[in-house]
Design a protein around this nucleic acid. Sequence first.
DNA 1: AAACTAGCTCGGCGTCATAG
DNA 2: CTATGACGCCGAGCTAGTTT
Length: 271
Amino acid sequence: MNYQTFQPHQDLEALVSCYWTLEIPAEYSAERQRIVPDGCIEMAFILGDDIKRYTSQDEFILQPRAMVLGQTLAPFCIEPTGYVNTFAIRFYPYGFANFVTTPIEQLANKETPLTSLFDASIVNELERSIINAEDTKQRIAVIEKFLLERLNEQSTIDTIVKQTVDALLTSNGTATITTILKEDLSKRRQLERNFKKQIGVSPKQLGRVIRLQSALKMLLNKETDSLTKIAYESDYFDQAHFNKDFKEFTGISPTAFLSNEQMALSTLFYK
DNA sequence: AAACTAGCTCGGCGTCATAG
DNA sequence: CTATGACGCCGAGCTAGTTT
């Protein structure tokens, strides 16, 4: 298994968190993997064999080979059908809205083929270039050219939304909406409306995802082995609340998660 | 300690009035 | 016509007890 991340070009670093690649030979190809919401939107290109996404216990769909994965609020499972080779772009929560006119809310909780977001001929050309590229470096060059070309001149993200996301990120998801808005409480409704359109989920929901992620990082980095401690340090009122959110976003309880082999892959993504 | 629960606050959202 | 802000309902989320 080979997972790597790469930093974006300067002009994109405000919007793109990183590029990443994952390669797993077919013989090691893992069983079902649990994907936990992390607040980010990803664009992914499947370069290896198809990947299944389970829609229920025993039903699945094959993911589009060039797609965007929107905000999610619940865990889901994917499973490789063979050789895994994926190239992906991880956008910050407000990153992707700058490249499309589609309301981001419509991308939430599912994968959307690139062809429904951009002109078909452009997508074909892009996909071809990505597939034919010799290495990741070239792929990054291709996608950056594409992104920079499409970057809307006028910043489509309004400042209140950006400020709110930043406040949520720096507070590990614990800042309350009222605190963030402070003197501008009249903007509350406006924030909610724009947030959904530009981020895809509500402010509080994103905050909860970020808070859980911060707890998850602590858990995976083995900073402490006490779940109670993690709960308090992540600013949960008590362990019960932590457990509840954990189950909601990951699908299993913290202890089950820790003992689960699936953790191996998750660990890679949350450094 | 953990589980339960009553009561409070906060956030999401429908709706309406007004502004641009 | 769309964008904005006010208002209020109500369910979600949080807190602080009380009970097991």
